[in-house]
Design a protein around this nucleic acid. Sequence first.
DNA 1: AAGAGTAGATACAGATCGGTATCTGCTTTT
DNA 2: AAAAGCAGATACCGATCTGTATCTACTCTT
Lengths: 240, 240
Amino acid sequence: MDDLTSTVEDGATSQVVLQQESDPTLCLGARTLCSARYGNTTREKLMAAASWSFCHGGFQATGVDTIARRAGTAKTSLYKHFGNKDGLIEAVLEREGAAWRAWFFAEIAKVQGDAEAQLLALFDVLELWFSDPHFFGCPFINAAGEFDMQNMRLRKIIAAHKSHLNGWIAAQSAILGDADPDRTVAYFTLLMDGAIVAAQVSGNASFAQHAKELAELHLGKLRATALVTPHRTDDSLSHS
Amino acid sequence: MDDLTSTVEDGATSQVVLQQESDPTLCLGARTLCSARYGNTTREKLMAAASWSFCHGGFQATGVDTIARRAGTAKTSLYKHFGNKDGLIEAVLEREGAAWRAWFFAEIAKVQGDAEAQLLALFDVLELWFSDPHFFGCPFINAAGEFDMQNMRLRKIIAAHKSHLNGWIAAQSAILGDADPDRTVAYFTLLMDGAIVAAQVSGNASFAQHAKELAELHLGKLRATALVTPHRTDDSLSHS
DNA sequence: AAGAGTAGATACAGATCGGTATCTGCTTTT
DNA sequence: AAAAGCAGATACCGATCTGTATCTACTCTT
């Protein structure tokens, strides 16, 4: 709680993130994207069934009949609630994304330490995620591969998800005196996406630790330059 | 002395790779996975149409009728040649993988320099790939997200593709005196997969350069520990 | 010239796809 | 108690899916 509070106060973006993400109805007991706990309403049952089916069998390959049957509801209820299959997909992605972020940041907040420790703990939480037997990769990445990226609705949802993550990373790196947070965000995006895909394809969760090692290399260099020039830009550094 | 020749002679694995990959019928004029040049036979036309359709619209969402229509052939010919849709998918993945690797290593070989320069040039070639307007991500990664990884045929094809890449990376890092090539291979797998996914999702090819920068961090540390006596740490690098 | 192999065209099969219409209950609100 | 709304059940729609059967036409080999 202490670490979480200080982090939220220091990072303006992460404050917004964590406040938006708090959803008591989620009650994340498990850690995978496909196993967020849902309620007993028809809508919740449909989203739970759809989430599991989409993550496990793909979006396009999973039919609405399968989802309705798995949810124990009527197909008509699915269309009354979500309009069409695309609406269901979007609702599932947004909900699972919010549930994942809530779990992710909560796990990170358990770790004690400064901003650098928090940033590195990110990869330990990733490894926890990869180790779940129901880990099927990141639904957002899978959706990006399955659908055309010209799909603007999908682009928007994925961008919002990444924006939450990037905001937190940028805030943490700013605490460390990072003169170029955008670069650090790009590095972390690379390492996270790479670890997710590599772990998914190989079935080996240890890629999270390899990503952590590469992140340590960057943060180590960051710390060295931050100590030398606390509030200087990179250009002035190269001329010295 | 040709760089390619020396590289092949030095790395046992890469020698096997490059010899296997040489296929005169491919004649790669373009650089995307979906645009390997195919012949005029019915089988070639089918594979060309299937490759483009699968990469552009996904594997499961693309029907065999669409492929046959695009190829200008009869659907019966498709089933006579490939048995079923899965056979066609596997043939396309293997062929496109071989074509991509042939193009990839040929582009790298154009770069002059030692093994470290070659390893870093890898990311410049990736950026070239990302910049292609017909870049739809890596078909192997997309297939991994779309199909269950329990699919053993698919696992085998993807593993073979990755094995080719990993063998070359391990050989190059061994030339540099790397005491732990497996670690370097894991790092490069991470960086390549991450760059591919990040570029695909964001539509920004510059992630290849960010991956290159992270690789430079690792290779720099590698060079320092290889040249300096083993007890020396990397902290001396920061103020040079 | 005869036969074999390849490929095109067409039609079809059985299943599933996304999506809708209709009707019957049940619960909640007023 | 009456009204309103939600959800289940069923049947159905047209389209598309993978895969097959059949028949014809062309080319290459012997």
